[in-house]
Design a protein around this nucleic acid. Structure first.
Length: 247
DNA sequence: GTGGCATGGACAT
DNA sequence: TGTCCCTGCCACA
């Protein structure tokens, strides 16, 4: 379930467990060469959008979970890994296993810079509101496509797309170019607030008063007004919207 | 037990 | 736009 808020949560937890000390880095599965960082001090683990970076001196392990990847944490760093673990990072307090990522690779600092250069502002990163607004308003096509474009805003995925656009009462097919500046600012601010709540809760939170509920995502009826939710493919993924409140 | 789908993205077409 | 990918979950049988 890897949208940006969960990567930020993982980064926070991995850093708390492992950063500041040498880590053991292995690939039980054998599909990743962990030797260059094995025994090195993990400076920090950070998330940028949906990307995770384990930072070592001059080198980083870049992880992207894709749709199916996951992390497993073990209190006992000696716990045997399950089959298929691509990367295990272990320290004195815990072990973190990476399973089925779409990307797990070593990057030098220049390659990290290139990666980051391709990403838009992260709602869970430094608040770069003017740049965020500029990128969204200048995106081509509908706002529902722009929100999934990681070069526009980095970290929003399909569940957030539907929920954020509902909260902002915007129809997903509204052209970005037509959105007033203050509307986009409002969307950015609610995105920052809700993703932060989601990071802290470990799940999508689109209504802080009811953190387990969704407004429209994968629902048959709008949680607010009860109208039948509209679901259709938009930018390659299923979009959900209320036909009444997001008209 | 099996098949379809998915909170992702790269790549071919 | 379609397809594939080191999975997990669900519905269904």
């Amino acid at each position: 379930m890897p949208e940006g808020h969960l990567l930020h949560r993982a980064a926070r937890e991995i850093s708390a467990d492992l950063a500041g000390a040498p880590v053991r880095a292995t690939s039980p599965q054998g599909r990743f060469d962990a030797a260059p960082v094995d025994g090195q001090v993990l400076l920090r683990t950070e998330a940028v959008g949906k990307h995770l970076l384990h930072r070592f001196d001059g080198l980083a392990v870049h992880v992207h979970l894709g749709m199916r990847g996951l992390h497993l944490r073990y209190d006992d760093p000696r716990s045997p890994p399950r089959p298929g673990v691509r990367l295990r990072l272990s320290g004195a307090r815990a072990a973190w296993d990476l399973i089925a990522p779409s990307t797990c690779e070593l990057l030098d600092d220049a390659a990290v810079d290139r990666l980051l250069a391709g990403l838009g502002p992260d709602p869970l990163g430094p608040d770069d509101e003017d740049e965020a607004v500029r990128r969204l308003r200048s995106a081509r096509g509908p706002v529902g496509a722009a929100l999934l474009d990681q070069a526009v805003w980095a970290g929003v995925g399909n569940a957030w797309r539907s929920e954020l656009l509902f909260v902002a009462r915007l129809p997903p097919e509204a052209p970005c170019a037509d959105l007033p500046d203050d509307v986009v600012r409002g969307l950015w601010r609610v995105t920052r607030a809700l993703l932060a709540a989601g990071r802290d809760a470990g799940q999508v939170v689109s209504d802080p008063a009811a953190p387990d509920e969704r407004w429209v995502y994968k629902r048959a009826a709008c949680r607010s007004c009860g109208a039948p939710v509209r679901a259709w493919p938009l930018a390659g993924r299923t979009a959900y919207a209320c036909p009444v409140e997001q008209a």
